[in-house]
């Protein structure tokens, strides 16, 4: 039998030491470098980080509780004591915004995470198996798409009562549909690539091909879409709160705060202004960050 003479390798060949090797720059590293050149995305990232830190750590530093009422104090504009004023019940607006931010942000991220997990698994499975399974799975997605979202949520609240987790699940259950479609499309194109064929012809297992060869190559678009999903989810939560289906008082999300502020807009404008400011800054920064990530992760799509 003819054996290829590749092994054992000739000993006279010097084995390069790890530290002598030229380090390559991975696509991730390149993407980060490109992102750093995108000033707008960087500002967005910094802004978002600041808002997130304020919301997470802020409540520990303020002397007020979010439910702490000072009825005698009443609604006041911004003062040194209350930087963003107080509402009609004398509650500190900044504290309430920070607490509301915690809720809004966690709804945003949790629901996105839910949609990510369901969407990626569902979409990747559908595309990888293909054929009739794929057709059936995607028709199911189409049917869910056709369901009116608000009625779906009202139904859920009627059955399970109002709770924060319900909001996560409700929103996640809607958002995963788009994610599944995106991931399916990506995997379908990827499946045709020769490096996947190469992996198959090397006899790698299906699990290995999905984990090592498919998923790392769809992570880019997934991250981008996730970044853009977070603000969309926060908006949805605000809509739910608007309809009175969101979090329950005295807890408040940004959506609830804006809703309350809207009612008192003519009398106490700061009650609308400050939560709306936080909310829009967050939406803006996430959207710009998402755009920046898209350009950075897929240099071909961007126009110089």
């Amino acid at each position: 039998m003819i054996r290829t003479t590749l092994s054992p390798s000739p000993d006279d060949l010097p084995v390069p030491k790890l530290e002598e090797l030229e380090r390559g720059s991975s696509l991730w590293k390149d993407a980060w470098r490109r992102l750093r050149q995108n000033r707008l995305a960087l500002i967005a990232l910094a802004l978002f980080t600041v808002i997130a830190i304020v919301c997470v750590l802020g409540p520990f530093m303020t002397p007020y509780g979010y439910e702490e009422q000072r009825l005698a104090y009443g609604a006041q504009g911004p003062t040194w004591e209350h930087w963003m004023g107080t509402d009609a019940l004398g509650r500190d607006q900044l504290t309430r915004i920070m607490h509301g931010g915690r809720i809004s942000l966690s709804v945003g991220f949790m629901a996105t995470a839910v949609s990510l997990v369901i969407g990626v698994l569902y979409g990747a499975t559908s595309a990888y198996i293909g054929g009739r399974t794929d057709a059936v799975m995607m028709r199911f997605v189409d049917i869910l798409y056709a369901m009116p979202f608000t009625i779906f949520v009202i139904l859920l609240t009627v059955i399970f009562g109002r709770s924060l987790y319900l909001i996560f699940i409700a929103i996640g259950a809607v958002e995963w549909l788009t994610m599944a479609r995106i991931v399916r499309g990506q995997v379908l194109t990827l499946k045709q690539q020769e490096f996947i064929e190469a992996a198959v012809s090397l006899g790698y297992s299906n699990g290995r091909i999905i984990l090592r060869h498919l998923i790392p190559n769809v992570v880019g678009p997934i991250i981008v879409y996730a970044t853009l999903t977070v603000p969309a989810v926060m908006l949805l939560e605000a809509v739910l709160s608007f309809l009175g289906l969101g979090v329950q008082p005295p807890m408040a999300s940004w959506g609830v705060l804006i809703n309350e502020g809207k009612d008192a807009m003519t009398v106490y404008p700061w009650l609308l202004f400050f939560p709306a400011l936080f909310f829009s800054l967050t939406l803006f920064s996430l959207n710009f960050l998402g755009d920046g990530l898209r350009d950075a992760l897929d240099p071909k799509s961007s126009k110089d």
Binding site: L27, Q193, E194, F195, E197, S201, R212, N217
Partner: peptide, 15 residues
Amino acid sequence: FQMIFQDPYASLNPR
């Protein structure tokens, strides 16, 4: 049995 593919830009895992 192994294969060498046509397009060297598509036949290697970029990651």
